[in-house]
């Protein structure tokens, strides 16, 4: 694991200009719009794609063949990509913390509770996005993944739209009435707990799918 993380961070270090531009744009957005949430969201989402960049580098010039001659397993490779995403997210959170702290000197400090909620929420959503990207990139490689991601997002949108159409049907609405009642009576804490549980389930599904795809891969 250590060797894989070092490899990816070393590759990303050569992309430090990209990261710097992300941070500068984040500062620009934060100072102009005065909204740390938007700024954090931007930095978090764009930085999250750096994990995908490392997968592209791994595939480049048949690099995967060489990579798996190292004392690592396919399972370890997959788990490391998720861990890397989390670590990148934490680095962005630290950068955001520093920026918000610095903003305090200019009288533009965002309340820390609001900042914390923003960081956790954007990190969670960014990780969900990466959880969608990782299995697709492992399955298709960098070349075909751009198209594959569009297809997957299109499919998700289509399922969402279908669900919306189904919910609009009166009979279905009647069936869902008891559920709506339950939701209305739930506390904020319960909502958060359900959100966290759904998030965790989606992440686990992504990891399991990635592992299965990777196990079938030949290099």
């Amino acid at each position: 694991m250590k060797g894989l993380l070092i490899k990816d961070f070393r590759i990303l270090l050569h992309q430090k200009t990209t990261f710097l531009i992300i941070v500068l744009l984040g500062i620009f957005m934060g100072t102009n719009g005065g909204n740390i949430s938007f700024s954090m969201g931007y930095m978090m989402f764009v930085s999250a794609t750096l994990t995908i960049t490392t997968i592209s580098y791994d595939y480049f010039e048949k690099g995967m063949s060489f990579l798996f001659t190292f004392p690592i397993s396919k399972k370890l490779y997959v788990v490391e990509k998720y861990l890397l995403s989390l670590l990148i997210g934490l680095v962005v959170a630290v950068v955001g913390f520093v920026l918000n702290f610095a903003a305090g000197f200019f009288g533009a400090l965002a309340p820390w509770d609001e900042f914390a909620v923003t960081v956790v929420a954007t990190l969670a959503v960014a990780l969900l996005m990466i959880a969608l990207y990782i299995p697709v990139y492992i399955k298709c490689g960098p070349e075909k993944s751009r198209v594959a991601i569009l297809i997957v997002i299109g499919a998700i949108a289509a399922v969402g739209y279908l669900a919306y159409l189904v919910i609009k049907v009166e009979a279905v609405q009647k069936m869902l009435m008891p559920l709506a009642g339950v939701l209305e009576n739930m506390t904020a804490g319960q909502f958060i707990a359900i959100g966290v549980a759904i998030w965790a389930v989606l992440m686990v599904i992504s990891v399991v799918v990635s592992l299965r795809i990777m196990e079938k891969k030949e290099f």
């Binding site: 250590k2 060797g3 894989l4 993380l5 070092i6 490899k7 070393r10 590759i11 270090l13 050569h14 580098y57 791994d58 480049f60 010039e61 048949k62 690099g63 995967m64 063949s65 060489f66 001659t69 190292f70 004392p71 690592i72």
Partner: peptide, 28 residues
């Protein structure tokens, strides 16, 4: 215990030997 040279692949071209040293220390 196995050392490998593959004709068509190796370390990413964007790395340098200092990077290779760090990675190898982490791997072996």
């Amino acid at each position: 215990n196995i050392g490998v040279v593959l004709s068509e692949s190796g370390f990413s071209g964007y790395l340098n030997i200092k990077d290779v040293v760090s990675i190898m220390k982490g791997m072996y």
